[in-house]
Amino acid sequence: MAKEATPLKNIYISLFCLFGVLVGGTLGYMIVENWSFSESLYMTIITVSSVGFKEVRELDLKGEWFTITLILFGMGTIVYGITNLTAFVVEGDLRKILRKSRMEKNIDKLKDHFVLAGLGRVGKNIAYEILRMGYPLVAVDSNENNLAEFDSSSPNFFTFLGDATNEKTLEKAGILRAKGFVSALPTDSENLFVVLTARQLNPNLRIIARVNEEENSIKMIRAGADKAVCPAH
């Protein structure tokens, strides 16, 4: 099943369509009326924008029909763009982007904080405990619902939507400046990979990792964890 286009993607499509109309209109006047590039571009812009300025030159019959066609395409593109822009604002994408930008700027200022990979059932309990101790915390999760459902009004709590197994994601979460790192992802294989990556990025980091199988604790320690914890025990 094809993915539904997001409002932001539709904005890009609208801009691409507008660019296509400008290019098509400019080339059209150059071919139909034999005008220069600057004259054709100017005529295209005033036609599409409907500002009502005087034509560059008198149009012949072919030029008039081309202008009518350009107006129809131009107005259709503008209406399509306005519709997508409205959807972009109303559906909250703009607010999400601005909120994400502010969050990333705040994370960039952090130092000696904790980074938590995974904000599921176990991760939430760990997050509450870290915040209770007064440490700033950046929670990383690829599930937006997990981040949204976490109930905390603490000014020390920050979220980052992304894949914790990705090195760039950990860097954006400030792991190079962090005091500690807790990996609470669902599977031992994910935690093992993240611990190995975190240790390589920051050799001085205090790392605690979740394990589902007790026998995997030694592997987690060898990968770079200072401590491996099995919630089931």
Rank of each mutant, 00 (worst) to 15 (best):
T67P: 05
T67N: 14
T67M: 10
I68H: 14
T69R: 08
T69D: 09
T69V: 09
T69P: 11
T69Q: 12
L70R: 01
I71C: 03
I71G: 02
L72D: 01
L72R: 07
F73E: 00
F73W: 05
F73C: 04
F73Q: 01
G74R: 00
M75T: 09
M75R: 03
G76F: 00
G76I: 00
G76Q: 00
G76L: 00
T77G: 01
I78N: 01
V79F: 12
V79G: 01
V79D: 01
Y80R: 12
Y80V: 03
G81R: 09
G81H: 13
G81M: 15
I82L: 08
I82N: 03
T83E: 08
T83K: 07
T83L: 09
N84T: 03
N84H: 11
N84S: 10
N84E: 06
N84P: 02
N84Q: 07
N84C: 05
L85I: 15
L85K: 08
L85W: 14
L85S: 15
L85E: 07
L85G: 14
L85R: 09
L85N: 11
T86N: 07
T86P: 01
T86K: 04
T86G: 04
A87N: 08
A87G: 03
F88P: 05
F88T: 06
V89T: 08
V89R: 07
V90Q: 08
E91I: 02
E91V: 01
E91R: 11
G92L: 01
G92Y: 04
G92I: 03
G92F: 05
D93L: 06
D93T: 13
D93A: 06
L94G: 01
L94S: 03
R95D: 15
K96A: 06
K96W: 03
K96P: 02
I97L: 15
I97H: 09
I97V: 14
L98D: 04
L98I: 13
L98E: 04
L98Q: 10
L98G: 06
R99Q: 13
R99H: 13
R99N: 14
R99G: 08
R99C: 04
K100Y: 04
S101T: 14
S101G: 06
S101R: 15
R102D: 11
M103T: 11
M103V: 06
K105I: 14
K105H: 10
K105A: 13
N106Y: 07
N106L: 13
I107M: 06
I107K: 06
I107R: 05
D108R: 14
D108Y: 11
L110F: 10
L110W: 08
L110Y: 13
K111M: 02
K111S: 11
K111C: 03
K111H: 06
D112A: 12
D112Y: 15
